[in-house]
Design a protein around this nucleic acid. Structure first.
Length: 625
RNA sequence: GGUCCUGUGGUGCAGCUUGGAGUGCACGCCGGCCUGUCAAGCCGGAGGCCGCGGGUUCAAAUCCCGUCAGGACCGCCA
């Protein structure tokens, strides 16, 4: 990432003949004019050194009191902008600076033009300095001068190019869809734009180009893509920008789930392979085909639908082995209640403090699951347990609540199921099958981070498939679409008519990498009668479908090809490829956590005149009584 | 909507647990010295509503309550 993009030759102009970083020893003896920022100053009184910085790099200027410009340069503050002229000279060998690409030469200044004077800056322009997020965002243009963010923006530009050229080569047509569109009732909160021409009416910024891309399929485009801006008025996270973000939105006609997987795997492997060229990203490993997990398996074995598969530690199923077979009531009763018993190995977790286990049990309890544990002891004379193997220690000495209540054989069953070693701990849960793994999954992630189990050079992509079509909403006492109402139910109309809604799966899939949800996609429902039946289960009549998605509804009556698509998050992918923990690091001008732009001051109040023109009146929120 | 962390000269921190004068460190800034530095060096100096408001106390950066700002998370994100 320290390498810069190669620059094309620069035409000589009034300010400079060449970029500072492009000057080489071959220029020694020539007069050059250069321009840039004063990055550092080393004033020896009778001799002055300046690091001249521009986009291309740094070159040392040297100025002597008997030469023109010395007074000016010694007076100027750091980060002032100058254009200087002089002769490129070779340094004495003892004065070489190996840290600088231009460290064997310097420019002996004999003419200075001040282009812009800098006041004292709010923070140093130093890539190594730790500056608060707030200051960085408020002065983002200065933060950019520090360098690392610009390197990431270069990688961002390169990623966009790679995506565009690859998908274009694969026959996808890049099409931009409207930014001002209609509000749709489903999904996230919309950003609304009041219409001046039509009082009381609003445009909405698209949450995704979902309906447009499906209409493109009906329009016979067959393969579409776009690096699409998406707008959602929802709360942020480190991996979720507030307000706006970009997706590599793509859709394919006459395509199955397999076709989408194949295209996306090619795309991902392509960008993972190509982006590191030129030092724009760390070198990572990823290989296709990506492993697949059903949603049900993922939730059972990893306690989440976005598992980090860079390390093992799957959650073990113990329901059959222990349920109904022990004296311990919570295990004894599990089968009768339809509950599951699950377990997770904690490597070298035996000596963890009691409060850590208690915290786990508390967290489990909060989600309606009983948590317990076993702590396996190291056999005497074997301090770290690294040599002993489980099969050499048929009866591991153990403590913890389960050890007191289970027989040796039952403890052994658990130990073997999770592959625990002496000195390990085993966490267990008992609860409803769809929830029992969740607290274990949370611990799995935490343990993975703490113990550094994940290889940072690996990108462990995987597909999560077969999401349920519906989920039961306890509040409304009704079935909700669990993901996307546009997805095709597996089994089609027949499944909708005959199956229990909770058992219907959708052709809905996620691409997950290293525990991050990279994208959601689906085979779309292109048949009006199936759509009607699908909405009926969610409690909506046919008129609701027509009202909510009028264009799509109508279009599907005029010959719609079966189609499928997906939309990998562009910013998230970049964050992953560049090892960044926060999206703001890969965005030029990001909003802060609270969706404020500290640089531009958005959102802000507008004039009465503007409001009047838009037929709007502000009603201040009433204070809570 | 909620939970947690942070807020101290321009920047980054320490001080807070156990209240006792705005005490300290590094960088920056201003002035002086300095002809081979590249994190230049040396000497001197300036710079503070300890986020803001209230409370407890003889006494608050420190303890309590509220509030604002920044960050992490839960809810939310079809």
């Amino acid at each position: 990432m320290t390498d810069r993009l190669s620059h094309p030759p620069l035409a000589q102009n009034a300010y400079r003949a060449i970029r500072a970083g492009d000057v080489t020893e071959s220029y020694v003896g020539r007069r050059l004019r250069l321009a840039g920022w004063i990055g550092a100053k080393r004033d020896h009184g009778g001799l002055l050194f300046i690091d001249l910085r521009d986009t291309g790099g740094v070159l040392q200027l040297v100025s002597h009191p008997d030469r023109a410009g010395f007074e000016t340069l010694s007076r100027l503050r750091l980060e002032s902008v100058i254009s200087v002229e002089g002769e490129i000279v070779a340094r004495d060998e003892k004065d070489f600076n190996p840290k600088l690409a231009t460290g064997t030469i310097e420019l002996a200044v004999d003419s200075v033009e001040v282009l812009s004077v800098a006041e004292v800056l709010p923070f140093p322009i130093d890539p190594a300095a730790e500056i608060s997020e707030e200051a960085r965002m408020r002065y983002r243009y200065l933060d950019l001068r520090r360098g690392p963010v610009v390197a990431r923006l270069q990688a961002r530009a390169r990623l966009a190019q790679l995506v565009r050229s690859h998908l274009s080569d694969r026959g996808f047509l890049e099409i931009t869809t409207p930014i001002l569109t209609a509000s749709s009732p489903e999904g996230a909160r919309d950003f609304l734009v009041p219409s001046r021409l039509y009082p009381g009416e609003f445009y909405a910024l698209p949450q995704a180009p979902q309906q447009f891309k499906q209409l493109l399929m009906v329009g016979g485009i067959e393969r579409y893509f776009q690096i699409a801006p998406c707008f959602r008025d929802e709360a942020s996270r480190a991996d979720r920008s507030p307000g706006e973000f970009y997706q590599i939105d793509l859709e394919m006609a006459f395509a199955t789930q397999e076709d989408v997987f194949d295209e996306v795997e090619q795309l991902m492997v392509h960008v993972v392979t190509e982006l590191p060229e030129g030092g724009l990203a760390p070198v990572k490993r990823a290989k296709a085909p990506f492993p697949r997990l059903t949603y049900a398996d993922a939730v059972t074995r990893y306690g989440t639908d976005k598992p980090d598969l860079r390390f093992d530690l799957a959650i073990a199923e113990l329901t059959a082995a222990l349920g109904g077979a022990t004296e311990l009531p919570m295990f004894q009763l599990a089968l009768d209640k339809g509950h599951a018993i699950r377990a997770l190995r904690v490597p070298a977790g035996g000596p963890r403090p009691r409060r850590w286990f208690d915290a786990f049990a508390d967290a489990a309890n909060k989600s309606g699951v009983i948590g317990s544990w076993l702590q396996l002891e190291n056999p005497p004379g074997d301090a770290d347990g690294s040599i002993a193997r489980a099969d050499e220690q048929p009866k591991l000495p153990a403590k913890g609540p389960l050890a007191r209540k289970l027989t040796d054989d039952e403890v052994q069953t658990i130990v073997e199921a999770v592959g625990a070693l002496p000195g390990d701990a085993v966490l267990t849960t008992v609860g409803p099958p769809h929830r029992a793994s969740q607290p274990l999954g949370a611990q799995r992630s935490a343990i993975g981070r703490e113990l550094g189990l994940a290889d940072p050079d690996e990108l462990a992509f995987c597909w999560i498939t077969d999401f349920p079509m519906y989920e039961w909403n306890d509040e409304t006492r009704d079935w909700d679409f669990s993901h996307n109402p546009f997805s095709m139910p597996q089994g089609g109309l027949d499944a909708l008519q005959t199956k229990d809604p909770g058992d219907i799966l959708a052709f809905q899939y996620d691409l997950v990498c290293n525990g991050l949800e990279l994208s959601s996609g689906a085979v779309r429902n292109h048949q009006p009668e199936v759509m009607e039946a699908a909405f009926a289960i969610a409690g909506y009549g046919p008129e609701r479908v027509q009202q909510s998605f009028p264009a799509l509804w109508q279009a599907f009556h005029y010959g719609a090809p079966p189609h499928a698509g997906i939309a990998p998050g562009f910013d998230r992918l970049l964050m992953l490829l560049l090892d960044q923990a926060n999206l703001r690091e890969v965005i030029a001008f990001p909003l802060n956590q609270s969706a404020r732009d500290l640089l531009m001051g958005a959102p802000n109040e507008v004039s009465e005149q503007q409001l009047k023109e838009l037929h709007l009146r502000v009603v201040p929120p009433t204070a809570p009584s």
